[in-house]
Amino acid sequence: MFRDESPAAGSPAPGGDVPQSGTTAEIDVSAMGEEKPSRRMTPRTTMLLSAGFVVLLLLSGGGALLLATSGSGASEAELTGEGVADESNDSEPLRSGNLFPETVDAGGEEYSLVIDDDTDDCATAAQGGYGEQLEENECRQIVRASYTSEETNRAVTVGVAAMSTADNAQAAQEAQDLGSSWFAGLNGEQGSGTERMRYASGQGSGAQWGRYLIFALAANNDGRAAPRDAEKLTTLSDDFVEVPFDSLSERAQE
């Protein structure tokens, strides 16, 4: 799996898609309430979450996220996400056991699954006003899982939001405001190393593929911002965003 350069902003991607610009923003969340073979997704969005809704930095870039395996027999549905573009031909609910393995190797460390969650009340898995945007764009389900590594004292929430159509997924992605609202981390039990994830400061990454929005938030397990860890947390969140794709890609082939 690898990241590659994307075409210039606004130029067509394979399959006719037009990539969106990646975004990086440093924001404050402390006040928030409560392709296997060369499969193209929309570019990832990346954000550094730190402590009160004030946007300190906003940059645009064009990095696209690609997944690759050996072989060249990918169907058009796999390449573009067309096979999972509408719930009318992709109606099976997501299951956490298929999406999230018991352990994940990322950043040279092993992360263990602590907790998973499945809800059709998408607003409960979002921060700020993003829950309303998810509901308006017909979010059907959000499945999340949180992992931790004892060696690095880091924790990650990774998740998938299933929208009704790819168009609604794109609209929900465009409605994200990294300065005030996004997906929420998933808390585990006290002492699990994931108990602060809902309000943790960290690094988040996300992508759209078909009707699915994939996201990951990587943080120190004490929930505190640590600017010196930003680069490592960025790599970690990028790695975890790719975790659900083995399962999602199978749906496009059915």
Rank of each mutant, 00 (worst) to 15 (best):
L65A: 11
Y199I: 12
L49G: 12
D118C: 01
E250K: 14
D116W: 01
N187T: 09
E242L: 13
D120N: 11
V114P: 00
E5K: 10
E34S: 13
P227H: 09
A172D: 00
E150G: 15
T24G: 08
R140N: 11
V160N: 05
E151G: 07
M41Q: 10
E189M: 02
R228G: 11
S112F: 01
F183E: 12
G206S: 14
T119Q: 00
A85V: 00
A172Y: 06
D17I: 06
M32S: 14
L113F: 03
G71L: 01
A226Y: 04
Q20Y: 08
A216Y: 03
S112Q: 10
G33A: 13
G108T: 08
E109W: 01
T157D: 05
V241P: 06
D167M: 03
T45R: 10
A64V: 15
R196E: 15
V54N: 13
M32K: 11
D17A: 13
P93T: 01
T194M: 03
T152Q: 11
L213T: 12
F53Q: 14
Q203W: 03
V143N: 00
S11E: 14
E26M: 07
S201P: 08
A13D: 11
T165K: 02
R3A: 09
C139H: 05
L186M: 08
D117C: 05
P227F: 07
E189F: 11
Y111W: 08
T148S: 13
G191T: 03
A125V: 05
G193N: 10
A226W: 02
V143T: 11
E34Q: 12
D222Q: 05
L186R: 11
T46D: 11
V160T: 04
G107K: 07
Q203K: 07
L56W: 02
L178Q: 10
G107R: 01
S164W: 00
N137P: 00
S192R: 03
L248A: 04
T45Y: 05
A68K: 13
E132L: 10
V158A: 09
D17Q: 12
T80C: 06
C139K: 00
A85Q: 04
T235K: 07
D118I: 09
L186H: 08
E78A: 13
F245N: 06
R140L: 15
I142K: 04
L58P: 05
L186Q: 09
Y111C: 05
A175R: 06
E5T: 06
S21N: 13
A175S: 13
S112H: 09
N220H: 09
S50F: 01
G10C: 00
T235H: 04
L94F: 09
N89F: 15
M197E: 12
L99V: 05
F183M: 14
V143D: 00
R39K: 12
G63P: 02
M197W: 02
S50M: 08
